[in-house]
Every structure is written in structure tokens, then in C-alpha cells.
């Protein structure tokens, strides 16, 4: 790896970090704020590609990395499927669960 390429990557990473931190001060609404993860994902990609040289090892390296990502996606997607679609009727005061309150 040439020193220039390494230095450039390092600079870019810090640049993206600066943008990310800067963007967090913008008045982004609560539902949209997880978008702040996007720069982080970009940085992760850069670390994998350049620092970890994912392109250089045997092919199976890419396969393993892809498997890790795919299964993470399965976990996050199917794992949040139920919580995000569940309707909950909370009991007003947990400590005194009297049947006085009237749910649905």
C-alpha cells in the first residue's frame, strides 16, 4: 500500500467523520435521525476496503464478509419486524395492575 493512499484514506475518514458530526447538529427530525448512520457505514466500507484490504485475500474472504452482513441483516430485519408492527395496550400503572382501566 502506498503511503499516499493510506494518508488519503485517513484524511477521507476524518472528513466523513467531520461531516457526520456536523450533520448531527442540523435540525433533523427524530424519525430521520438514524440516517446519521449512513456516513458511518461509508466509513466502515472504507476501513474494510483499504485498511483491511478485503480485495486482496482469497475469494472466500469476501464470501465470509458478505455472510456476516447478510446474517446481520436477517437479524435486524426479522428481529425488528415484530416490535415495529406490534400494537400494545399498556397497563397504566405497572405496580397496581387493577382491572379498572378499560383497554380496547
Amino acid at each position: 500500500m502506498s503511503p499516499r493512499r493510506l494518508l488519503l484514506t485517513w484524511g477521507l475518514l476524518l472528513g466523513v467523520l467531520a461531516i457526520e458530526v456536523g450533520a448531527s447538529f442540523l435540525p433533523i427530525g427524530r424519525p430521520a435521525r438514524p440516517l446519521l448512520l449512513l456516513p458511518a457505514l461509508l466509513m466502515v466500507g472504507m476501513v474494510a476496503a483499504i485498511f483491511m484490504q478485503i480485495g486482496r485475500g482469497p475469494t472466500v474472504v469476501r464470501l465470509f464478509a458478505a455472510a456476516g452482513l447478510l446474517w446481520l441483516l436477517i437479524l435486524l430485519a426479522l428481529g425488528s419486524l415484530d416490535p415495529l408492527t406490534r400494537i400494545v395496550y399498556p397497563v397504566p400503572a405497572m405496580e397496581r395492575a387493577t382491572p379498572a382501566a378499560n383497554p380496547p
Binding site: W71, I74, L78, L81, D82, T85, R86, I87
Partner: peptide
């Protein structure tokens, strides 16, 4: 890895996720 929800059909998960699982 896509089917674990069938252990939870009576656990109080959402109907939609029960159907999917």
C-alpha cells in the same frame, strides 16, 4: 434463520410477524 418466530405464536407478537414466520 428465518423461522424462529414460530416459537412465539402465542407470546404476544404482532399478527403480521406471526403470519410471516
Amino acid at each position: 434463520f428465518l423461522v424462529w418466530g414460530h416459537h412465539m405464536f402465542v407470546a404476544g407478537t404482532s399478527l403480521f410477524s406471526a403470519l410471516v414466520f
